[in-house]
Amino acid sequence: MSEHEAHDVLIEVRNLDKSFGDLQVLRGIDLNIRRGEVVVIIGPSGSGKSTLLRCLNRLEDPTSGSVKIDGVDITTRNVNLPRVRRQVGMVFQHFNLFPHMTALENVMEGPRTVLHMSRSDAECLAQGLLVKVGLADKANGKPANLSGGQQQRVAIARALAMNPDAMLFDEVTSALDPELVGEVLNVMRKLADEGMTMVVVTHEMSFARRVADRVVFLDQGLLVEEGPPDRIFHRAGHERTRQFLDQLHWDIASE
């Protein structure tokens, strides 16, 4: 890769293996994610998608191989993990909002506790982010009083409050009622349009097709193939990719 391209790469995964006991979940994954790129990871359940994502901010420790964020290997023993995680925001399937805080306090928590921002600055920032995800009127609501879609949008705002270089989305619409999926995907699409670097694990193929710059197909811990969505969805090179997409009733003819 040329010098220019090397500078462009924000997340660099090399020969990544991950095992849970005897079970090998990831096998020799190589993946580069460039600044501003939206990469969608698809694959059957148990294929290692979420584990791969969780290795990118060391919520999982890789068994071997390396992950570099902005050139810094985060798999070494003495890496400053809180510092790494500030750079990489994460949104979870089950939202994981802090239930003892309001929506606004959830968004303020990272800037306040981790960045030691003043209360007024953090509040201003959080208000702005809640406006951005369309929840300005829910600032003082507790998570328990918000719908799943609203909670997930607060969770996105919470991650954005750290001003991360990249965002990781781990099946963020899988726990939502179908009618609430759209509002979350719309926020994500807006982020993508603004140039946020995003790694998205999802089963929402329409999102992958419309928003992804690149689609990565994982099966049984192997990165089977990757490419632009148009190619993966219409001219996949591997039989396993085609089988997987067929099983999703992905109707190519209707597109």
């Binding site: 993990l81 995680r85 990272g110 981790v114």
Partner: peptide
């Protein structure tokens, strides 16, 4: 998930 959400924000174990 609570612990993971906090760590993912960059909090230390103590925070």
């Amino acid at each position: 998930g609570q612990r993971e959400a906090a760590l993912a924000l960059g909090m230390t174990g103590w925070q």
